[in-house]
Design a protein around this nucleic acid. Structure first.
Lengths: 219, 219
DNA sequence: TAGATTGTTAATCGATTAACAATC
DNA sequence: TAGATTGTTAATCGATTAACAATC
């Protein structure tokens, strides 16, 4: 009902809250205020309260939030109280790094299938995850579906990979290839473009020089 | 002047435009409309025109944009017409993958120093980039500064790493550690949290179940 | 000229934040 | 009770989009 309308920015922050609350919980603190959370992750305290109240009344006026309760609740909202099966496509350097990434396991994400076109990679890798030939992907995933697909293939085959994942019935895709993929509306898609992130930084770095050259250029 | 006020969302899209225009240019197309660009990267055409007009009048009414000119201009705006020196800290699996990531080189980013605490890693790695001991980072970077620092260390030492980078005079940081880092306002910081991206997807995946359990829970 | 597409305005939409009554 | 902090409203701010005059 109301949940469907959670702003995207709120969902991102909920994920940050859950991460932060896990950290706070480890320090054996039992209570936390919206101000503490806000300072901890660098946002406005009003945002924190608003975000949290979207999910129901979990705080106590004049007191704050119970760390464990709040953490459990946020984790439940994000769907992290159950395990998620993840399929990785493309076992290059980045794919390999992601397949062993501890941060995923800690949050309940289990990469349990890997697909690649390179026949020399087919078999079992160190991490214990089996590597299958990409041609068999649709069949294998139809037989035993995955929740999420991670695309780590070169950009030239990224759209075809996405199409295959969709065909296999996957409902969520995390894309690391630097292309804008087209997927049907019922499939959730997130893009992590590493170069784009660096380019935002260089924009900031070069504002001064740029301003000068722009002035020269446009008059 | 005006440039300082570019909305963040515009900067991100500019990066996507430059990527897309590079692709279009390779196909030997000389003209492109805002509608084509919009369809190519999945945004609204009015957004495209607005974003591009922030940077000066580069289109021709009734005709469109010259692909090469526009691409060059956007690239200049983003500061990608010059090379950027990048320092990578933390040579784990992810760091290793990033150090060989082709997408960086293609966009003019050169990772030319790597720091790590693990003495067995000190030396030269396959990619030809020299690996230095982390203790020497501030000294080495002060001697020969880098433009951007990439943090790929475990979260327990991420803030200390950021502090050291700031101390060494770096002005932009790309952080892959799952913590909210504190840096002075003059330092640009971007965070790439891989788990957060997956969690946004699981939120979408679990909306239905959640709605049910929430109703049961709050009444 | 007729058709196309830009650049820009104005309207809409959504997200952030300040402020404060409610209340522990 | 006095102090603290929530939950929520209303105000502000910023980003998106539709619409259209300008013009190639």
């Amino acid at each position: 009902m109301k949940l469907k309308k959670l702003p995207n920015s709120t969902i991102i922050r909920l994920s940050l809250y859950s991460r932060y609350l896990t950290e706070v919980d480890r320090k054996e603190l039992t209570l936390i205020s919206s101000l503490d959370i806000a300072k901890g992750i660098g946002v406005n305290p009003a945002s924190v309260r608003k975000d949290l109240s979207y999910c129901g009344d979990f705080g106590t006026k004049g007191v704050g939030y119970n760390v464990k309760d709040l953490r459990n609740h946020v984790i439940k909202i994000l769907g992290l109280n159950s395990e998620w099966n993840v399929t990785l496509v493309g076992l290059g350097n980045l794919g390999l790094a992601l397949s062993t990434y501890k941060g995923f396991q800690e949050r309940g994400f289990v990469i349990n299938r890997i697909f690649d076109t390179d026949s020399s990679k087919i078999g079992s890798i160190s991490n214990g995850i089996q590597v299958f030939p990409a041609e068999q992907m649709v069949d294998i995933l139809r037989e035993k579906p995955s929740d999420i697909g991670i695309i780590c293939v070169p950009m030239s085959v990224a759209q075809a990979t996405a199409d295959a994942l969709v065909k296999s019935g996957i409902k969520a895709i995390l894309n690391f290839a630097p292309v804008s993929l087209k997927v049907p509306p019922e499939v959730s898609l997130r893009n992590v473009d590493l170069a784009v992130n660096l380019e935002i930084l260089t924009f900031n770095l070069s504002i001064e020089e740029l301003t000068d050259s722009l002035i020269a250029r446009s008059f």
